[in-house]
Design a protein around this nucleic acid. Structure first.
Lengths: 150, 150
DNA sequence: TATTGTTATACTCTATAACTATA
DNA sequence: TATAGTTATAGAGTATAACAATA
């Protein structure tokens, strides 16, 4: 299954490349993607992104400095902070998401529609099995996902 | 094709996780994997890894400090340097490669053999098309590839 | 002149450990 | 005591620009 590793590298590289044209790293893009339809706490983000809390603090710091997100006090727990997309942040991710999706589409442009469909089904199955195995929610992981939801 | 992005993240995360158990980053693992059957110059590595020369200098510096690789003067061009795997480096990658491959295998364990085969074929096709499009050699990109060759 | 590689610099991403404030 | 988040610190990875040595 070496092809799978190569595929992952190719997709990853494509996403890095396109995110960069929007002045985003992949992690920043995922962060903004997650925030499109929710305002999680730092700890929740830490779970979504599978990162240490302190890493998320830094990530949010940098995004906040750039005016992409803001911190909002929680009403029910004064220790907690909710991270919220700003108007600017929403504009940035709304612009970036289609081009990210487009780059993926370009990657599989050589496949026939039915092959694309089969690949999609198999990929979903692998992702679902992996998420189940690790006890996490499989929907939360890519800005492209949220792009298609919206 | 959002599933493809999610798949890429899942595979990538799995490789990061396993490489870490061998005290390697993904890039270090790819570097060692490439060096298994060749001794490229810095510029050649830069092409294989799609990184700037200066990034490769740093990568090789760190690997050299850890005794995994060494620099060897080129015989024909005194500007060039060939990067060579040390005995230690070979031991490390020979140990890591099977566990990396094993983790990929685990990821697709839920699929039937014929589904795995189909996924492999589709993945190879996408990778090949992408490599062709970008004018690079598709074989050079993962330590797992070299693991299976050896 | 052009190419090979390094250095200087700066930034992002990441984690661990220690800390503060709240629960 | 336990949890939420931050800070301090350290290190890897990355790129750009300027440079020396060689072609």
């Amino acid at each position: 299954m070496d092809a799978l590793a190569q595929l992952a590298f190719a997709v990853h590289a494509a996403l890095v490349r396109i995110a960069a044209t929007h002045d985003l790293s992949i992690v920043q893009a995922r962060l903004l993607g997650i925030l499109r339809d929710r305002s999680p706490t730092i700890t929740e983000l830490s779970g979504f992104l599978q990162l240490d809390k302190s890493s998320v603090t830094g990530l949010v710091d940098r995004a906040e400095e750039r005016g992409l997100v803001r911190r909002a006090a929680s009403t029910d727990d004064r220790r907690s902070v909710h991270v919220v997309l700003t108007t600017t942040g929403r504009e940035v991710i709304d612009q970036a998401a289609p081009t990210l999706a487009g780059e993926i589409a370009l990657l599989v442009a050589d496949l026939s529609p039915s092959q694309r469909n089969r690949l999609s089904v198999l990929a979903s199955r692998v992702v679902a099995a992996d998420a189940r195995r690790r006890g996490v929610d499989p929907v939360e992981f890519t800005p492209v996902a949220h792009a298609q939801v919206s």
